Simulated scan of single mutants.
Amino acid sequence: MDTKNPHLPMGYSPVPPGKLANVVTCLEMLEPPPTRPAPAGSLTVERWHSPSVEDYRDLFRRVGEDWMWVSRLLMAKEELAAILGDPGVEVYTLTDGRERLGLLELDFRKEGECELAFFGLVPEAIGGGSGRLLMNTAIGRAWEKPISRFWVHTCNFDSPAALPFYQRSGFKPYAVMVEVSDDPRLTGEMRRDAASHVPLIEVP
């Protein structure tokens, strides 16, 4: 890549063996959108105060392993514990009263902004409006604070329903990036049959 022009060149760019290339879409909302109705039911969203690293990673893996969520699995335990215990970070779970079925993490550590850091459901909770219930909570909690921007990013490893869902929720795309990283299925951080929609290419 030309260091004077830090953008990818036109055309195809080879990806090294053992690496993954992920297209990331960044979205933002600059004011609260109209509330979209969520179905009534037995599920609720609860604040998860200072979760342990082990419990958090368990839910993180259940929600995200099939969508190639790996960042919090690679992070040092002490670093993750500091984030989860930071007063500028709020973690919520979707629950049926017996188990946690969804993860919502809001990051207010940058003044005037909120990042929707993580948002997702375990496979058995997808459908039936559970995502709308969790998103309504995310939007409501974010805009309770003195922010002027609420943002999130999603990628082509995520569910194909994610990007249109975020847009229906009021987020608008503003940038596209490409992320190159190690394939965690080859390095042992993720089971080899995870994220079957992402081709697994063995290193020669």
Rank of each mutant, 00 (worst) to 15 (best):
P184H: 01
V45K: 10
L30N: 11
Y166S: 07
L73N: 05
L186I: 05
S181R: 12
E54S: 15
D158A: 02
F60D: 10
V24Q: 09
S42V: 13
F171D: 13
R192A: 12
H197I: 03
R191L: 02
R62N: 13
T25E: 06
S52V: 07
V15D: 01
T154P: 06
V15K: 04
R168G: 10
R98T: 14
G18V: 10
M135G: 08
A38K: 09
R109Y: 05
L186E: 06
T25Q: 14
R62V: 06
S148W: 14
E65D: 05
P184A: 02
L43P: 02
E54H: 15
V178P: 01
D107Q: 06
R132L: 09
G131F: 06
E202Y: 04
P123L: 08
E189G: 00
W48T: 07
V180F: 13
G127V: 01
P199L: 04
T154E: 04
H197N: 07
W67K: 07
E28D: 12
W151F: 15
L116D: 09
L30I: 13
F150S: 08
S181E: 12
D66F: 05
G41V: 09
G120H: 11
M135E: 08
H7W: 13
K19C: 12
H153I: 03
S169N: 14
D193K: 01
M190N: 00
I139V: 15
L133G: 10
F165P: 08
V15E: 00
